[in-house]
Simulated scan of single mutants.
Amino acid sequence: MKKKNWFWLGISVIILLSIGIICWHAVNNRNSYSANTNQVGQVVDRSHSAPTIYLHGWGASGKSTDSMIAYAEKHNNAHKVLTAKVKRDGTIVLRGTWLKGTPHPIIQLVFADNKNGNYYLTREWFYHLIVLLQKKYQIKHYNTVAHSMGNLTTMFYQVKYGSNPKLPKLKKQVNLGGHFDGIVGMDDKINRNYLLSSNRPKYLNSSYRYLLKYRQNYPSGVQVLNIFGNKGDGTNSDGDVSVVSARSLRYLLRGKVSNYREIEIKGAGGQHSQLHENSQIDQAIGRFLW
């Protein structure tokens, strides 16, 4: 064979190998999406169902919501369809497959920067997730289940974006150990605060003042389940969040929600980190959502 023919044969082999490598990467990354790009990828219509987004607390990871999701999958015919990871630079990566007709879809949200208490920032991360889900899956409604810091992320989001008619609307909101008016040992003290006859807390921290100022932007008609713990050790708290701080949510949402319920978990099961490992709570969430 002439040298010229060998040359073109080599070029052909290189081109075919390159195409093969590109196709391999495409197949292996078909379920991932980076929010830093302008391409949503294949758009699929999942507007018929409202996904439930699970958010973890400060310093936690997906492990803190794993058991709740597992319970929902076993007992409530729910299915985790996506994991949404927010990287430290705000990039969102979706992994998973959301099949058409999936009953009670669940999306597990995980922050790589899981100790970032700047709720003005974390709510923007949540906003980008909602926009991404709207573009990629055409969602119109969603629910949230949040523990600890996740509650403040969602509340800060709702009082800025919740009433925007161009965005998907919140249907049901579940709160676990929400420190809406302070954390014991930081900006709250044991048995210092109390609720007035109006359910307004006597002392207000900076986050609560902000939420109170912009509460009119919270969407109307949402159903809310507020779950909090009381260890029963005299502190009237779950060890990190006082009962008053958790219950202060009622005053924030007065006149805005269609239904508001509270559940107090007493004893060891009411400890702050045990709230997401409690089958009694799992049952209550399942009944409330589905």
Rank of each mutant, 00 (worst) to 15 (best):
G10T: 09
I11D: 08
I14W: 04
I14K: 08
I15P: 07
L16S: 12
S18R: 12
S18K: 08
I19T: 09
I22V: 07
H25M: 14
N28S: 10
S34Y: 11
N36C: 01
N38I: 11
V44G: 04
R46W: 00
R46I: 01
S47D: 07
L55Y: 14
H56D: 02
H56E: 06
G57F: 02
W58R: 08
W58A: 07
W58S: 05
G59T: 05
K63R: 15
H79G: 04
V86T: 12
R88G: 10
R88L: 02
L94K: 12
W98L: 04
L99A: 08
I107C: 03
Q108C: 04
Q108G: 10
A112P: 05
N116F: 04
N116C: 05
L121V: 11
R123E: 09
W125K: 15
L129V: 02
I130K: 00
I130M: 00
I130L: 00
Q134C: 03
K135R: 15
K136T: 10
Y137R: 14
H141F: 03
V145Q: 00
K160C: 02
G162K: 13
S163I: 07
K166P: 01
L167C: 06
P168G: 00
K171D: 01
Q173C: 03
V174W: 01
L176E: 05
L176F: 13
D188S: 15
Y194V: 02
L195E: 09
L195G: 06
N199D: 14
K202C: 10
Y203A: 02
S206V: 14
L212D: 05
Y214V: 01
N217D: 07
N217K: 13
V222I: 06
Q223S: 15
K231F: 00
G234T: 11
N236F: 09
S237L: 01
D240T: 14
S245F: 04
A246G: 09
S248V: 03
L253A: 05
R254L: 01
G255E: 02
K256A: 08
S258Y: 03
N259P: 06
I263T: 11
I265K: 05
G267K: 13
Q274K: 15
L275N: 14
Q280H: 11
Q280V: 06
D282R: 12
A284W: 05
I285G: 00
I285R: 11
